[in-house]
């Protein structure tokens, strides 16, 4: 087990290296001079040259990468071109809404999807199963921002129950806080819920059709215990996978949902930065989420090892 953990943790390093190169190169994909692009059409050649020099764009790429990497590792992501603040501070101030929104979306998805997926699988072919299949298919075809718009139409425009935009922090009271992120969280969580339902159902079905479930039944294990003990532990690997993927999907989907609902999180910061051509902010957010993704996947793999003894050895 120890060897497995160490091995898996070390395997993250090359992936992170590649990710860092990809993210670093993003800014250099800008057609023409990034400095000129950042300052816009109105900038004077002197300003552009000054920024060009300040950003170190005239050095060879590997050197630029080295400097950038060193800065990133010490927590410095550069300075925003738009308002001359350090990017790190901007990220931190936009972190809370995104985290709350993502967690609530994930919670909704998990609470809905996993029980429904299991119900579908254990009642295969019945009306309950068909409804689960239909719900998950609809969910997969309904992107979050569309669902968000439809939810706004229903709950904000028609019923006037919930706000259509804006964010109330925890200091505005728990209820107001939840109210402000409930619709966005549903919009964000629904597609993930659909995917989770699908995968949970499929994996549960596969397990239920396996020989060891038949063996367990032949041993006299009760139907309830077959599902909760024998089948559940074997589907856990899939459940861990879908939860970790849903977490990443929610985090990245938040970009669209946050701008739809005007929630001042990382996603909105990123979308606003597109218009401002604030490439360093975009770069920092992408890097942050990509690294988070790699780390989450690593934890998911480590959890597989806890659940399934075969993974530990292999």
């Amino acid at each position: 087990m120890k060897r497995f953990i160490v091995k898996r943790m070390l395997s993250v390093i090359p992936v992170l290296f590649i990710v860092s190169i990809v993210v670093f190169m993003l800014v250099h994909l800008v057609p023409g001079d990034p400095a000129a692009a950042m300052l816009g059409d109105m900038a004077s050649p002197e300003d552009i040259a000054a920024l060009h020099a300040r950003l170190g764009l005239d050095r060879p790429l590997p050197v630029q990468y080295g400097i950038w990497l060193k800065n990133v590792l010490t927590g410095y992501f550069g300075e925003s071109v738009a308002n001359h603040q350090p990017v790190t501070g901007m990220l931190l101030s936009h972190l809370e809404p995104t985290i709350h929104l993502t967690l609530l979306a994930l919670l909704i998805a998990v609470m809905v999807a996993i029980p429904l997926g299991m119900i579908g699988a254990t009642n295969k072919g019945t009306a309950a199963d068909h409804s689960v299949t239909v719900i998950s298919l609809l969910g997969i075809s309904l992107p979050g921002f569309l669902l968000g718009l439809f939810l706004i139409l229903i709950f904000a425009v028609k019923l006037k129950l919930l706000p259509s935009s804006g964010y109330a922090g925890m200091n505005a009271g728990f209820l107001a806080h939840i109210k402000s992120i409930l619709l966005p969280a549903i919009a964000l969580g629904f597609m993930n819920a659909a995917l989770m339902m699908r995968m949970t159902r499929a994996s549960m079905l596969e397990v239920l059709n396996s020989d060891y479930i038949r063996m367990a039944r032949a041993k006299g294990v009760s139907g309830f215990s077959v599902i909760t003990r024998h089948a559940f532990k074997n589907t856990l690997v899939t459940v861990i996978t879908v939860i970790s993927q849903a977490l990443i999907q929610s985090l990245s989907g938040a970009a669209v949902i946050e701008s739809l609902f005007a929630i001042p999180g990382l996603g909105q910061l990123m979308v606003n930065s597109i218009g401002r051509r604030d490439y360093y902010v975009i770069q920092a957010i992408v890097l942050l989420i990509a690294v988070f993704n790699v780390v989450i996947n690593m934890f998911a793999d480590l959890l597989y090892g806890v659940v399934d003894p075969r993974v530990r050895v292999g």
Binding site: Y212, G220, K233, D308
Partner: peptide, 26 residues
């Protein structure tokens, strides 16, 4: 419920493929 007490207690069964018939995670 009563059938469960026949299975495994009165009548037992063994299957062809032991690897797939034993639960891999126990």
């Amino acid at each position: 419920k009563e059938m469960r007490h026949v299975r495994g207690e009165k009548i037992s069964m063994i299957f062809q493929d032991a690897l797939s018939s034993l639960n891999p995670v126990f």
